[in-house]
Amino acid sequence: MSRLVVKDLAKSYGETRVLERVSVTAAPGEFLSLVGASGCGKSTFLKIVLGQETATAGTLTVDGRPVPPEPTTDRGIVYQRYSVFPHLTVRDNLVLVADLKHGGPLARVFGPKRRTARDEADALLERVGLRHAADLYPASLSGGMQQRLAIAQTLLGRPKILLLDEPFGALDPGIRVEMHALLLEIWAEHRMTVLMVTHDIGEAFKLGTRVLVFDKVRRDPQFPGAYGATITYDLPLDRKTRPAAPTDAGVIPGPVLQRSA
């Protein structure tokens, strides 16, 4: 549970402005859905929060401290693809977390520590429904199973902030609903701060406690790169008063749908 504060963030690639004047505060335990048209900079924003990219201007703090300009264990990430290590079995993908954190220069824990790490891994695999696949390599798992593993692996790192970059974008609708349930359960358990980029408006409203819409407010037709995108809508969703999670795009306010479709 951590507070993320972003102030006046901007990002340019050469002449092209991608983001400008992005300011947002995420309270501890909030679930922010980031939506917007393709190429509007929401993934870039997520990469900046992650430390994979550095902002051109502005500040970014977690619990009041500026975040270092490289990825750290504070922030966990689940990508749409390439989220697990193909050369390790499912179980070893999880044991790797202990190896990297406590394994020292050999990057491997031994003896009782290893047994603990294995037991913890197996318990978590049971939890996400992958216990039977513990000894398989990720390549032989389905897309949904790979993402379950990716989420489990990220959770083991115990990040303060969980970042999700279109985590369910490549999955079948049925599997996606299962993954939503799993993610909501995990979020309810750990109450970590979550930022999720998605193309699926229904998903954004179903999962998030707040939906942020990224879009450009100024456009220059002669020079499309002149202005960057910013947060144009910040929609808090009061989960308690909402009767049920909307499941399709029908309940979503018009302008958001148009902008993000």
Partner: peptide
């Protein structure tokens, strides 16, 4: 790059 970033978020340094 995703794998390299992910390894860093799990506590990896250059050597490990």
């Amino acid at each position: 790059a995703e794998l390299v970033v992910k390894a860093q978020t799990l506590g990896g340094n250059t050597w490990t």
